[in-house]
């Protein structure tokens, strides 16, 4: 059951990215180019997603636990630390360079495979770099 839900969530999320053209880096860069020929369409993506997302959290706040799990796994930290600021800053630079954030970047493997293999290879390497750096620091 969990496997089906997880797979379908990925599938529908990916479909949402495709329908809204987040999967096309040319559209994303057009959205980020606010001082040039700005394409504001992705505001509607964020607006649509966040408005439904907020309804989800209103319902969540009235329930003691999820329908199919014993507890909520929603992040609870509220502190603004150096890693958050630095990490978000680096991510934004990478996003602006190619127009790929992680989800659309993964879909480039099929939509634009020549670019996809380079981007996803580096995406996994960057993620691994953090993982092993952290692992070493913790042990």
């Amino acid at each position: 059951m969990y496997a089906i839900i997880t797979f379908l969530t990925g599938l529908l999320f990916g479909l949402g990215l495709a329908v809204s053209e987040m999967t096309n880096p040319a559209v994303v860069i057009g959205f980020l180019d606010i001082f040039g020929e700005w394409n504001p369409s992705l505001i509607f993506v964020m607006g649509g997603a966040v408005s439904i997302g907020m309804i989800g959290y209103v319902i969540r706040n009235r329930r003691s636990k999820p329908w199919l799990a014993d507890k909520w796994y929603v992040p609870t930290r509220r502190d603004i630390d150096k890693n958050l600021v630095l990490g978000a800053g680096l991510f934004g630079i990478g996003w602006g360079l190619s127009g790929y954030c992680p989800g659309p970047g993964l879909t480039a493997l099929t939509n634009n495979p020549m670019e996809g293999v380079y981007f996803v290879g580096a995406l996994i390497t960057g993620s691994a770099l953090f993982h092993f750096q952290n692992h070493r620091n913790n042990s």
């Binding site: 495709a18 329908v19 053209e21 369409s41 999820p66 799990a69 992680p102």
Partner: peptide
């Protein structure tokens, strides 16, 4: 279409949250 895609993304993340209690974060899931 961007609005439709956004609504689909929102609906998916809200349903996933209410069913499993988890947030959809692609970088974390990867």
């Amino acid at each position: 279409l961007p609005l439709l895609g956004g609504l689909l993304i929102g609906l998916t993340t809200a349903a996933y949250l209410l069913l499993t209690g988890k947030v959809v974060g692609i970088s974390g899931i990867l």
